[in-house]
Nucleic acid binder design. Structure first.
Lengths: 172, 172
DNA sequence: ATTTAATATAGGACTTGTCATATATGATTA
DNA sequence: TAATCATATATGACAAGTCCTATATTAAAT
């Protein structure tokens, strides 16, 4: 449901083609909003039908892409959504489900699961840290908030790593 | 997709009716696998069709419920899933999306968002802590792992609270 | 005694997202 | 020059889950 707003958010900065939109999302919000290609195009179609986005084929462009713009109505919807207090979200975590019933498969297999996850978490933490290090710390509110979304990911992988290690120790 | 395995997991412990299953899930795995009533029944139907679950109406029961059992095939599928290394999961977090584009609405509204989330996080942390305090610390591998899933939730809300506070401070 | 709440199951309509596939063009490379 | 890769858009089939509504029985409360 929020893909609408993710797209409107990007279009509030500058016009994008569907393709560029997808690339931009992959490069910035992928870790908290992975965008499926088909879904991006379908949502764009929907946004256009709702009058929140307008299209304009680029004249004289070598590529046959369609530039998408946020309309006034689109920006108004975006801002209303941004201001609405976010409801608590439910999450589904298959990994925790495995842990919950892990007693069935024995400590060795559970350890393997935890260690695999630890390796992934370490890699992700390193990635987040590298990106964070390359980003300037101050700046205007937008810069601070964009950095904050990255730090959020970092804090959560850190928490996950700590939890994995304490769980491995607690295991009999 | 994992609801299948959540259900098989519960049925590996003891037989359940659809209704009791839902209640049991709400009472134990809700924070990482919220179960929709309709979905539980539909998945049960599917599991029966696949031969992983068997039903048996309870004789002489005052209620008209159907008891569901995991079959041998069901338990085998469960164990295979438990042993398969969990792939990295993608997550979608509308709240971070709001933060990412928060620059549009100004610091005051962003603060309001963060403070609302902090209140929710504190409440959740208190709940997790209360439950964790009531749970014995040691026990067999199953007990340790079940407690661990709760601690996982706790560690992540704690991380979220820390992040909220540091973000509020970083805000101009 | 009647209403209301809890137990128990089920299905339709819908939304979001995934996966696979199709198509066409321009750019690069062998 | 032919093959292949990146750009660019689109659709069909499907899966998983949500929301709403329906139905029937039993227990509790007024």
């Amino acid at each position: 449901m929020s893909l609408r707003f993710a797209i409107l958010g990007f279009l509030s900065v500058k016009p994008f083609s569907g393709y560029d939109l997808r690339k931009a999302m992959d490069a910035s919000v992928q870790h908290f909003w992975p965008a499926d290609q088909a879904q991006v195009y379908r949502t764009l179609t929907r946004l256009i039908a709702d009058g929140l986005v307008a299209v304009q084929a680029v004249e004289g462009d070598s590529r046959q892409r369609k530039l998408h713009f946020a309309t006034q109505a689109g920006l108004a919807e975006l801002d209303a959504w941004l201001r609405a207090i976010a409801p608590v979200e439910e999450t589904r975590e298959p990994f925790l489900l495995k842990m919950f019933f892990g007693g069935r498969i024995g400590a060795a297999d559970v350890r393997a699961q935890l260690q695999a996850r630890r390796a992934e978490a370490h890699a992700l933490r390193d990635t987040f840290q590298a990106i964070a290090a390359s980003l300037p710390k101050g700046g205007d509110i937008s810069a601070v908030l964009r950095r904050a979304t990255l730090i959020n990911g970092l804090r959560h992988v850190e928490a996950e790593i700590i939890w994995i290690d304490e769980t491995l120790e607690a295991l009999p």
